[in-house]
Simulated assay, not measured.
Amino acid sequence: MKHGFLRYSLVALAAGLLLLAVLAGQQFRLFERAWFNTIAWFQQDQRRERSLWLPGYRAEIQAKAVEGLADDLSALTFDQERRMLVSVTNQPPQLVELSLDGELLRTVELRGFTDPEAIEYIAPGLFVIADERDQRLVEVRLDADARVFDAAGAPQLSLGIGLNGNKGLEGLAYDPLSETLLVAKERNPVRIFGIRGFLHRQPEAALDVEVLEDVERDARLFLRDLSSLDFDAASGHLLVLSDESRLLLEVDRDGRPISSLSLLAGQHGLESSVPQAEGVALDDRGVLYLISEPNLFYRFVPR
């Protein structure tokens, strides 16, 4: 009797552990990620030729504290005109300029913002900032010596995409060829929307905005959340950053994941895992930059 009860208990325990493993695999998208890694390994030669090929990147600067900022760095974009990086903080709301070595260059006070979470370079002196909780996009024009920017009177667009508190707009990217602003919704569920008609319109023209979705592409994103986006105009590929998945994903023109960069310790030369990845940017020479809360700076270079 005791042996029978023990056998039953072991079987029940094994079944319970298997069920937990399956549920965890679904929750953390482990099955899709494992399948992607397998296919990417077999097709690496073909994929390397037509992509940025993130597996080839290695950390050149890692976990460098940005001096002059306490914490709360969020988002990252590359200013092509001045060859610098631009970020935002939300407490206090400010725009932050960084050198390509992660040195603080300038801060600009942001007035009229409640929770600036993402920023994207559009053209010389022109940016878009996403206010997360309000789901609001604000067009920002900056002079080289500006110290304050006030959102009052600036062109703005309010979005009502799956409002659920602090899980709103989390990343921005810009496709200059189609003049499409790509907007990431963080989670529940993860989504990437295309916005056309907000930028480059005549001041007197009526606002005619088109919101685009790609449900199939979003379903392929085996990521638990979205932290940041960046668009590579040369390849037409999108970079998608996930803090919870500890992963940077490259997505091709057809919306298919094609390569990835793990943010875990021991991968790509990282001595420690990236604690909370919040922003990614690619410069015009193919160098990758990453920031993590509280105020950590990373630079990855292709081999």
Rank of each mutant, 00 (worst) to 15 (best):
S74P: 12
E244A: 02
S235G: 15
A63W: 09
R82C: 02
L290C: 01
S259H: 03
S74A: 12
Q91K: 09
V128K: 01
Y289L: 02
A63E: 14
I161D: 01
V287I: 09
V274Y: 09
G125F: 09
E120S: 09
E97D: 12
S259P: 07
D284V: 11
D150V: 00
R58D: 02
P93C: 00
V148Q: 11
A34W: 11
E210I: 04
V96P: 13
R147F: 12
G16Q: 11
G56T: 04
L17A: 12
Q43H: 14
S259L: 03
L126D: 12
R33M: 02
R187W: 13
L18I: 10
M84I: 13
R47Q: 06
R303L: 07
L137M: 09
T107G: 09
E179P: 00
Y8C: 08
L105D: 10
D134R: 15
L137T: 00
D218C: 04
E170N: 05
R29Y: 15
E60R: 07
V251E: 02
T38G: 12
R48T: 10
I129D: 03
G102N: 09
L248N: 06
A63H: 15
E103T: 09
R246C: 10
V280D: 00
Q94M: 15
P203N: 00
S235H: 15
R29M: 04
R196E: 14
E67W: 10
Q276L: 10
R285Q: 12
T77W: 03
K167M: 05
I119R: 05
V183P: 10
L169C: 07
K64E: 10
E81S: 15
R133Q: 12
S158E: 15
L100C: 04
T89S: 15
G25I: 03
L288I: 05
G194Q: 05
S259I: 03
R82Q: 13
V287D: 14
L261Q: 02
D225K: 05
F5H: 14
H237R: 06
L207R: 01
S9I: 12
D230H: 11
E60S: 08
A24K: 02
R201Y: 06
A21N: 11
D214Y: 03
W53I: 04
E271I: 07
L13W: 14
Q135A: 09
E117A: 06
A65P: 11
G168Q: 00
E278Y: 08
R58Q: 13
P93F: 06
E210R: 04
D101C: 02
S228I: 05
L163D: 13
M1S: 14
A24P: 00
D115L: 01
E244C: 08
L20V: 13
P189S: 06
R253L: 10
R50I: 14
F231I: 06
F127T: 01
T89Y: 00
L110W: 12
Q156V: 08
I129K: 07
G160H: 09
V209S: 05
R220L: 15
E170H: 00
L261P: 13
L290I: 04
A15K: 10
Q44Y: 08
L238T: 12
R220T: 11
V211A: 07
